[in-house]
């Protein structure tokens, strides 16, 4: 938190100064920040509104029934389907996973969701296939999904009752 308070103003100041004196690397870093920021800003407001709606309307029992402990394969599948329809990057997946956990999703399913949201997001997958070929994308999916599930089960059972979630 302290780092943020110093770093953000210092960075913005440095970028502004770079523009004033025409320091090219500083300007480029500033342009990078703008591009990435725009990409994030397009998704974040909607994502957090949906998270807010989810937290107020969806009951814990519902989440527990679908993605809680002992939901087994149904839970894995739900986590993967949810991940497939997630838009944006990790900056959406992390808060969604956090809210799911608060509502009683099991850790295994949280890890599956996080892993799957990195590899099966539909918009991303179609984009990937168009650049690298359908064969590439299919092999990647077929190999990586089971691995994500297995590693998530291992991680989840290791962390169950152990991991501390910081109160955000």
């Amino acid at each position: 938190m302290k780092l943020n308070k110093v770093l953000i103003p210092a960075f913005l100041l440095a970028v502004s100064a770079s523009y004033l004196v025409g320091f090219e690397p500083g300007q480029e870093v500033g342009r990078n920040l703008f591009t990435f920021f725009l990409d994030m800003a397009k998704v974040l407001p909607c994502a957090f509104i949906l998270i807010g709606l989810f937290e107020t309307w969806v009951k814990s029992e519902t989440v527990e029934k679908i993605m809680g402990d002992a939901t087994g394969f149904k839970g894995y599948l739900s986590a993967i389907l949810l991940a497939a329809t997630t838009v944006g990057g990790v900056y959406v997946a992390f808060p969604v996973a956090y809210s799911l956990r608060q509502k009683g999703a099991s850790l295994v399913n949280i890890f599956i969701y996080l892993g799957a949201s990195a590899i099966v997001r539909i918009p991303m997958t179609t984009f990937e296939a168009s650049f690298l070929g359908l064969k590439f994308t299919l092999i990647r999916l077929v190999v990586s999904l089971p691995l994500v599930i297995v590693s998530s089960i291992l991680l989840g059972s290791y962390f169950e009752k152990r991991v501390r979630f910081l109160p955000l």
Partner: peptide, 19 residues
């Protein structure tokens, strides 16, 4: 209430996103 939750969650993590 939902919008308040949305804002609270967002405001808490936004500085980290920016960093």
């Amino acid at each position: 209430q939902a919008l308040k939750v949305a804002w609270k969650r967002f405001a808490k993590i936004f500085p980290s996103f920016l960093t």
